[in-house]
Protein backbone atom coordinates (compact mmCIF):
# COMPACT_ATOMS: atom_id res chain seq x y z
CA UNK A 1 0.00 0.00 0.00
CA UNK A 2 1.55 3.27 -1.10
CA UNK A 3 -0.62 5.61 1.02
CA UNK A 4 -1.64 5.31 4.65
CA UNK A 5 -5.27 5.78 5.63
CA UNK A 6 -5.96 6.29 9.32
CA UNK A 7 -8.27 8.38 11.46
CA UNK A 8 -5.84 11.32 11.61
CA UNK A 9 -5.38 11.38 7.80
CA UNK A 10 -9.16 11.30 7.34
CA UNK A 11 -9.73 14.06 9.88
CA UNK A 12 -7.06 16.23 8.24
CA UNK A 13 -8.64 15.69 4.84
CA UNK A 14 -12.12 16.48 6.12
CA UNK A 15 -10.84 19.77 7.54
CA UNK A 16 -9.94 21.05 4.05
CA UNK A 17 -12.34 23.69 2.79
CA UNK A 18 -14.01 23.07 -0.54
CA UNK A 19 -16.54 20.90 -2.23
CA UNK A 20 -17.04 18.87 -5.37
CA UNK A 21 -19.91 17.21 -7.17
CA UNK A 22 -21.11 13.72 -6.28
CA UNK A 23 -20.55 12.55 -9.85
CA UNK A 24 -16.93 11.74 -8.93
CA UNK A 25 -18.11 9.25 -6.29
CA UNK A 26 -20.38 7.63 -8.88
CA UNK A 27 -17.32 6.89 -11.01
CA UNK A 28 -15.66 5.42 -7.88
CA UNK A 29 -18.73 3.27 -7.30
CA UNK A 30 -18.62 1.95 -10.86
CA UNK A 31 -14.91 1.23 -10.55
CA UNK A 32 -15.40 -0.74 -7.30
CA UNK A 33 -18.38 -2.70 -8.66
CA UNK A 34 -16.53 -3.49 -11.86
CA UNK A 35 -13.39 -4.60 -10.07
CA UNK A 36 -14.80 -6.35 -7.02
CA UNK A 37 -18.60 -6.33 -7.03
CA UNK A 38 -20.98 -5.66 -4.16
CA UNK A 39 -18.75 -7.28 -1.57
CA UNK A 40 -15.92 -4.82 -2.20
CA UNK A 41 -18.34 -1.88 -2.29
CA UNK A 42 -19.42 -2.81 1.24
CA UNK A 43 -15.78 -3.23 2.27
CA UNK A 44 -14.86 0.26 1.05
CA UNK A 45 -17.90 1.77 2.79
CA UNK A 46 -16.96 -0.11 5.96
CA UNK A 47 -13.38 1.15 5.70
CA UNK A 48 -14.66 4.74 5.59
CA UNK A 49 -17.11 4.07 8.42
CA UNK A 50 -14.23 2.81 10.58
CA UNK A 51 -12.61 6.24 10.14
CA UNK A 52 -15.69 7.85 11.64
CA UNK A 53 -17.27 9.02 8.37
CA UNK A 54 -20.09 7.80 6.19
CA UNK A 55 -20.16 7.44 2.43
CA UNK A 56 -22.96 5.44 0.85
CA UNK A 57 -22.10 5.38 -2.85
CA UNK A 58 -25.62 4.39 -3.92
CA UNK A 59 -27.14 7.38 -2.14
CA UNK A 60 -24.81 9.92 -3.74
CA UNK A 61 -26.42 12.41 -6.12
CA UNK A 62 -24.46 13.22 -9.29
CA UNK A 63 -25.09 16.95 -8.97
CA UNK A 64 -25.02 17.33 -5.20
CA UNK A 65 -22.00 18.80 -3.43
CA UNK A 66 -19.77 16.94 -0.98
CA UNK A 67 -16.66 17.87 1.06
CA UNK A 68 -13.46 17.69 -0.99
CA UNK A 69 -11.75 15.69 1.76
CA UNK A 70 -14.18 12.84 1.15
CA UNK A 71 -12.87 12.64 -2.42
CA UNK A 72 -9.41 11.70 -1.18
CA UNK A 73 -10.81 9.43 1.55
CA UNK A 74 -12.82 7.52 -1.04
CA UNK A 75 -9.76 7.02 -3.27
CA UNK A 76 -7.55 6.05 -0.33
CA UNK A 77 -10.14 3.55 0.93
CA UNK A 78 -10.45 2.00 -2.54
CA UNK A 79 -6.65 1.83 -2.88
CA UNK A 80 -6.47 0.14 0.54
CA UNK A 81 -9.24 -2.40 -0.08
CA UNK A 82 -7.88 -3.39 -3.52
CA UNK A 83 -4.22 -2.88 -2.50
CA UNK A 84 -3.65 -0.70 -5.54
CA UNK A 85 -0.18 0.39 -6.67
CA UNK A 86 0.57 3.71 -8.42
CA UNK A 87 -0.14 2.35 -11.88
CA UNK A 88 -3.46 0.89 -10.75
CA UNK A 89 -4.49 4.19 -9.13
CA UNK A 90 -3.75 5.84 -12.47
CA UNK A 91 -5.91 3.20 -14.16
CA UNK A 92 -8.70 4.05 -11.73
CA UNK A 93 -8.36 7.66 -12.92
CA UNK A 94 -8.50 6.61 -16.56
CA UNK A 95 -11.64 4.58 -15.82
CA UNK A 96 -13.51 7.65 -14.57
CA UNK A 97 -14.06 9.61 -17.84
CA UNK A 98 -15.57 6.47 -19.36
CA UNK A 99 -18.32 6.46 -16.77
CA UNK A 100 -18.63 10.10 -15.76
CA UNK A 101 -21.91 11.67 -16.73
CA UNK A 102 -20.51 15.19 -16.67
CA UNK A 103 -17.57 14.29 -18.89
CA UNK A 104 -19.96 12.73 -21.40
CA UNK A 105 -21.81 16.05 -21.64
CA UNK A 106 -18.49 17.71 -22.45
CA UNK A 107 -17.01 15.09 -24.72
CA UNK A 108 -19.83 15.41 -27.21
CA UNK A 109 -18.50 18.84 -28.08
CA UNK A 110 -14.84 17.91 -28.41
CA UNK A 111 -13.24 17.44 -31.78
CA UNK A 112 -9.60 18.00 -30.84
CA UNK A 113 -7.14 18.23 -27.96
CA UNK A 114 -7.08 21.98 -28.55
CA UNK A 115 -10.77 22.20 -27.68
CA UNK A 116 -10.27 20.07 -24.59
CA UNK A 117 -7.30 22.27 -23.69
CA UNK A 118 -9.40 25.42 -24.07
CA UNK A 119 -12.24 23.95 -22.02
CA UNK A 120 -10.05 22.39 -19.32
CA UNK A 121 -10.96 24.98 -16.70
CA UNK A 122 -14.67 24.55 -17.47
CA UNK A 123 -14.39 20.79 -17.07
CA UNK A 124 -12.61 21.29 -13.76
CA UNK A 125 -15.22 23.74 -12.49
CA UNK A 126 -17.99 21.31 -13.38
CA UNK A 127 -16.52 18.90 -10.84
CA UNK A 128 -14.55 20.82 -8.22
CA UNK A 129 -15.35 23.97 -6.29
CA UNK A 130 -11.71 24.39 -5.27
CA UNK A 131 -8.55 24.54 -7.37
CA UNK A 132 -8.00 26.30 -10.66
CA UNK A 133 -7.22 24.42 -13.83
CA UNK A 134 -5.34 26.57 -16.32
CA UNK A 135 -4.37 25.65 -19.85
CA UNK A 136 -0.67 26.61 -19.88
CA UNK A 137 0.85 25.57 -23.15
CA UNK A 138 -0.47 24.04 -26.32
CA UNK A 139 2.13 22.98 -28.88
CA UNK A 140 0.24 21.39 -31.75
CA UNK A 141 3.39 20.95 -33.86
CA UNK A 142 5.23 18.91 -31.25
CA UNK A 143 1.96 17.49 -29.90
CA UNK A 144 2.47 18.62 -26.32
CA UNK A 145 -0.05 20.09 -23.88
CA UNK A 146 0.72 21.49 -20.41
CA UNK A 147 -2.06 21.90 -17.87
CA UNK A 148 -1.58 23.79 -14.64
CA UNK A 149 -3.58 23.02 -11.52
CA UNK A 150 -3.40 25.65 -8.78
CA UNK A 151 -4.64 25.81 -5.22
CA UNK A 152 -5.46 22.16 -5.06
CA UNK A 153 -3.50 20.57 -2.25
CA UNK A 154 -5.81 17.81 -1.09
CA UNK A 155 -3.74 14.60 -1.19
CA UNK A 156 -0.99 13.11 -3.43
CA UNK A 157 -3.27 10.22 -4.40
CA UNK A 158 -5.23 12.75 -6.47
CA UNK A 159 -2.06 13.65 -8.40
CA UNK A 160 -1.79 10.07 -9.63
CA UNK A 161 -5.51 9.65 -10.12
CA UNK A 162 -5.78 12.87 -12.16
CA UNK A 163 -2.89 11.76 -14.41
CA UNK A 164 -4.98 8.80 -15.51
CA UNK A 165 -8.06 10.98 -15.72
CA UNK A 166 -6.54 13.68 -17.97
CA UNK A 167 -4.77 11.19 -20.22
CA UNK A 168 -7.97 9.22 -20.82
CA UNK A 169 -9.87 12.38 -21.76
CA UNK A 170 -7.19 13.16 -24.36
CA UNK A 171 -7.16 9.58 -25.61
CA UNK A 172 -10.93 9.59 -26.08
CA UNK A 173 -10.70 12.91 -27.91
CA UNK A 174 -7.94 12.06 -30.37
CA UNK A 175 -8.57 8.31 -30.47
CA UNK A 176 -4.86 7.60 -29.84
CA UNK A 177 -2.77 6.64 -26.80
CA UNK A 178 -1.07 9.53 -24.98
CA UNK A 179 1.72 9.87 -22.41
CA UNK A 180 1.24 12.00 -19.31
CA UNK A 181 3.65 13.18 -16.64
CA UNK A 182 3.17 15.38 -13.60
CA UNK A 183 6.19 17.63 -14.11
CA UNK A 184 5.41 19.90 -11.17
CA UNK A 185 3.70 19.02 -7.92
CA UNK A 186 2.75 21.21 -4.96
CA UNK A 187 3.41 18.24 -2.67
CA UNK A 188 7.03 18.26 -3.91
CA UNK A 189 7.63 21.95 -3.24
CA UNK A 190 6.33 23.41 -6.50
CA UNK A 191 3.83 26.29 -6.37
CA UNK A 192 1.30 24.28 -8.38
CA UNK A 193 0.72 20.99 -10.17
CA UNK A 194 1.58 20.78 -13.84
CA UNK A 195 0.73 17.92 -16.16
CA UNK A 196 2.43 17.43 -19.51
CA UNK A 197 0.59 15.38 -22.10
CA UNK A 198 2.27 14.10 -25.28
CA UNK A 199 0.74 12.16 -28.14
Amino acid sequence: MIFELDKKTADDLMSIDGEMKGVVFKTDEKFILNKGGEEKLKEVEEEIKNLGYSLKYREIGNFKFYPIGMRAISLLAIAKVFDLNEEQIKEMGSFAPKTSLVIKFFMQHFFSVKEVFDKASNIWEKHYMIGKMKPKEFDEKNKIVNLQLEEFNVHPILCIYLSGYFSKICEITINKPVKIEEIKCSFKGDPYHEYQIKW
Binding site: M107, F110, T173
Partner: peptide, 11 residues
Protein backbone atom coordinates in the same frame (compact mmCIF):
# COMPACT_ATOMS: atom_id res chain seq x y z
CA UNK B 1 -24.59 3.98 -28.00
CA UNK B 2 -23.39 7.50 -28.56
CA UNK B 3 -20.33 8.22 -30.67
CA UNK B 4 -18.16 11.36 -30.66
CA UNK B 5 -17.43 13.21 -33.93
CA UNK B 6 -14.05 11.40 -33.91
CA UNK B 7 -15.70 7.99 -33.87
CA UNK B 8 -15.10 7.20 -30.19
CA UNK B 9 -17.88 5.58 -28.15
CA UNK B 10 -18.90 7.84 -25.29
CA UNK B 11 -21.95 6.07 -23.95
Amino acid sequence: FFVSPNGVILE
